[in-house]
Design a protein around this nucleic acid. Structure first.
Length: 483
DNA sequence: TTGATATTAGT
DNA sequence: CTAATATCA
């Protein structure tokens, strides 16, 4: 053994998708053992899969995190390169005995982490990884037979009833190691790189403020009010009665135990059964996130393959023009177009609308869900492999939670039901601002002359929903092989 | 203990 | 229809 003990030796905490110091399991564990120096590595292999909105949010979060450490006499080391080389090099230069990090459950990250473990072993540096990103670790929630769940509801019941960890404490200032600048190896960066330094354009979308403080503000805001109306209003996109924590949970600018704790506190203040149920409905959304993390952990191939087996290949259509119209928010289905424009403008889409635009692409246009998933990955600030893949495959009827009736959304009915006053549509589709809500909901079925009169600049529908519905049913019946 | 069958529910 | 569980022979 190169080191007799890790009790007093310096340690590195490798930040990845946990851009916070509070409620951070690996960081807390390291700080208990001795001084710890935090480090973030700009990994080109990861940046290759990234996009401007996500990197912009990440850089803002890193600045907040670095400030947090500065204010306590520490520093967040920044480095660029392959973590297999960077981490052993920093450990060597600073004489660190151990590197710790929190586990990431996506397939690519797991491969990278295994390679980093081998590199550290070769360099005789100790390492440890911790379960942190979700409340209940993959493998900890199984059926009575010990299998992994593929239906959400049963998973939720077990998830809900299981005891949960409290948030972990942030390290004390005296547990933070601040290395001498002269000791730092060449791979470290003196300052935070810009988007341009990393080879990215400025994002088209406006990016929300990132970091632990704005994340906590969002959580506190939500728990003071909207969480009690969540069950009733969460599906109305104009209300935006949601937590808006998706990007924070993706980047770990807030810990999920802290989020759960805050919702449990809110539950204690609930006024009546309906408010309690509303809080539980939100907690159930946290469980969805964990359900999909488990699914991805045990089925890493779902990033590119259907979760559900069909007898024959699904005959997706190659329709570049329709795909482009969908991306541009020019399909002539108002609520679909509003959602796709929100995606471009904000790097975010309300969840109900995500399901709706995904159903439109995969069922009305019969375009492969992978095309939609790729576009979301490019544009969403909160893109998370597990959640987005789970959502897309659910909408495409290739995922978990198979249902007896075939899942096709009617975009007109959905608009009427969830955006009755067309407030959401008008917010993102200015061409329709002077139209009546009724005209907006019925837009695809109006006469051409009528459409020309109401909003000459807004497109006619690119497909006929009723026709495409039949076509989708035929396509999926053929794939099932039971026609 | 096992296997067949009923029950429940599906963002 | 299917998954998971409960029930019963």
């Amino acid at each position: 053994m190169p080191h007799e003990s890790s009790e007093a030796g310096m340690q590195l905490h490798w930040h990845r998708r946990d851009l916070r110091a509070d409620d951070n399991r690996a960081l807390a564990a390291a700080a208990e053992d001795g001084p710890v120096c935090p480090v973030f590595v700009f990994d080109d292999a990861v940046l290759d899969h990234a996009s401007p909105p996500r990197v912009a949010f990440m850089l803002d979060a890193l600045l907040s995190l670095r400030t947090w450490y500065w204010e306590r006499g520490g520093d967040l080391l920044l480095a660029r390169g392959d973590p297999r080389e960077v981490l052993p090099a920093i450990a060597d230069a600073l004489d660190a005995e151990r590197v710790v990090w929190n586990k990431d459950y996506s397939g690519l990250a797991r491969e990278r982490d295994a390679a980093v473990r081998r590199a550290l072993d070769d360099a005789d540096v100790e390492r440890a990884s911790y379960h942190d990103a979700i409340i209940h670790e993959p493998g900890s929630i199984t059926t009575n037979e010990g299998d992994h769940y593929s239906v959400y509801t049963y998973f939720w019941k077990k998830w809900r009833d299981r005891a949960k960890d409290d948030p972990f404490p942030a390290p004390d200032a005296d547990a933070l190691a601040s290395p001498e600048p002269d000791d730092l190896p060449d791979v470290t960066l003196p300052s935070l790189p810009t988007l341009d330094d990393l080879g990215f354009e400025e994002p088209e979308a406006s990016i929300p403020e990132a970091g632990p403080e704005p994340a906590r503000d969002r959580l506190a805001d939500f728990c003071e009010g909207d969480i009690y109306r969540y069950e009733e209003r969460r599906d109305y996109p104009a209300d935006e009665c949601t937590s808006r924590l998706s990007a924070d949970l993706k980047w770990g600018t807030i810990g999920v135990r802290e989020v759960y704790d805050a919702t449990d506190d809110a539950k204690a203040f609930a006024d009546g059964e309906a408010e309690i149920e509303s809080v539980e409905e939100f907690q159930s959304q946290l469980a969805w996130r964990e359900f999909y993390a488990h699914v991805l952990n045990f089925n890493p191939e779902v990033v590119s393959e259907n979760f559900k087996d069909y007898e024959h290949e699904i005959e997706w259509r190659s329709d570049p023009e329709a795909l482009q119209a969908w991306k541009d928010g020019e399909t002539g289905y108002p609520i679909v177009d509003a959602g796709m424009r929100q995606l471009r403008e904000e790097g975010y889409v309300h969840n109900r609308v995500r399901m709706l635009v995904a159903a439109f692409l995969t069922k009305d246009l019969l375009v492969d869900w992978r095309e939609g998933y790729d576009w979301f990955r490019e544009k969403l600030v909160d893109h998370d492999t597990a959640n987005d893949n789970g959502g897309w495959q659910w909408a495409a009827s290739t995922g978990t939670d198979a249902q007896p009736y075939f899942r096709i959304f009617n975009p007109m009915t959905q608009g009427e039901r969830y955006d009755p006053d067309a407030e959401y549509v008008k917010r993102y589709v200015p061409e329709l601002r002077d139209a009546d809500p009724e005209q907006i909901h019925d837009w695809p079925e109006l006469a051409d002359a009528e459409r020309e009169r109401i909003a000459p600049d807004y497109p006619a529908p690119i497909v006929d929903h009723a026709e495409r519905r039949e076509l989708a049913i035929e396509t999926f019946e053929a794939a099932r092989g039971d026609d």
